[in-house]
């Protein structure tokens, strides 16, 4: 696997505040989610990836280059959409996107064409000559996405790209991001604190917290494994849980009355107990590890420590 970003023992702090103490991870091609709570150091890491902050120690390679040594040349090949929604109010979207593309080394005429194309791609074709000040938050997010991809970067870094969007806009934006990552073949680093978003669009994930990498790898490796079963019956949930416990299974009951049976071999036992009790089954499905399970497990380990 070609590493798009490779960090080894990276640390960064300001004065006595250590934001990142020891980051070691490798990000491959595709869409990678950068997860962490607010203040975990996601933005600091992004700024180091862009070569805007120098690290205190460790090694960092982005697209095979050290950002500290080759910042301008590296940034020529990176697209970035910041978290904020502030853009020049009196500039139209096409001019802004063209200007950013030119800054990244694209000749003016080609930059003009690509700006127009990218604004069509993100769904702002008809709006491209409107001043950004007249645009909604959702449209501004799309403008930010268009300017990040207009210069055909090898890597796009998106910092909270769905911030300020309503659920419908968020789904549309995630669809766009997924499309850019898969159809356009651009590697992407998506910083977010929303687990569902990362799970929805990303191939890989890096979870940071307490200044270190908690987990990293392919999403399919981290989540998706069978945890057991979710059983919902129309009566006698407590008895079902008790008999399964007696049979040696780890069982919990949710506040909705669903019975969570851990162990991927529990299906037969559940069927037998349900038959014995004579109750109807409303739901019986495999329970898989979600990104939320992984994230919460890391959080609880941290709390326990």
């Amino acid at each position: 696997m070609t590493a798009v970003i490779e960090a080894t023992n990276v640390a960064k702090g300001w004065g006595s505040t250590h934001v990142l103490t020891d980051l070691t991870f490798s990000v491959g091609t595709g869409l990678t989610g950068l997860l962490g709570s607010n203040g975990a150091g996601k933005t600091t890491l992004i700024k180091m990836v862009l070569g805007l902050h120098d690290r205190d120690q460790g090694n960092l390679l982005v697209l095979g280059t050290d950002p500290e040594e080759a910042g301008p040349e590296l940034r020529m090949r990176i697209g970035f959409a910041p978290e904020h929604h502030h853009l020049p109010e009196d500039v139209n979207a096409a001019d802004l996107v063209r200007h950013i593309a030119e800054l990244h080394g694209i000749p003016k005429q080609i930059a003009t064409e690509r700006a127009s194309d990218m604004l069509w791609e993100v769904g702002l074709g008809e709006e491209r000559f409107r001043p950004i000040g007249t645009m909604s938050t959702g449209q501004r997010q799309r403008v930010k996405l268009a300017q990040a991809i207009a210069h055909d970067p090898s890597l796009v870094v998106l910092d909270e790209p769905t911030d300020g969007l309503d659920p419908v806009q968020r789904d549309e934006m995630l669809g766009l991001i997924r499309r850019i990552g898969s159809e356009f073949g651009i590697d992407m680093l998506l910083s977010s604190h929303r687990l569902v978003e990362v799970e929805q669009v990303c191939d890989n994930v890096v979870i940071i917290g307490d200044g270190i990498v908690k987990r990293s790898g392919a999403l399919s490796d981290l989540s998706g494994a069978d945890l057991g079963y979710i059983v919902s019956v129309d009566d006698k949930s407590d008895e079902l849980a008790a008999q399964l416990r007696t049979a040696g299974y780890d069982v919990n009951i949710t506040i909705d009355g669903d019975v969570l049976v851990n162990g991927d071999q529990a299906a037969l036992a559940v069927r037998n107990v349900v038959a014995t009790l004579g109750v109807g089954i409303r739901r019986f499905e495999t329970r898989r590890v979600t990104l939320e399970d992984v994230y919460l497990a890391e959080a609880s380990e941290t709390g326990a420590a």
């Binding site: 862009l50 301008p72 940034r75 910041p82 853009l87 109010e89 800054l103 990244h104």
Partner: peptide
């Protein structure tokens, strides 16, 4: 004020 500075500094400019 308009946030363009962060876009400029994420470009090849220092």
């Amino acid at each position: 004020k308009s946030g363009m500075l962060s876009l400029y500094l994420a470009s090849p400019l220092t």
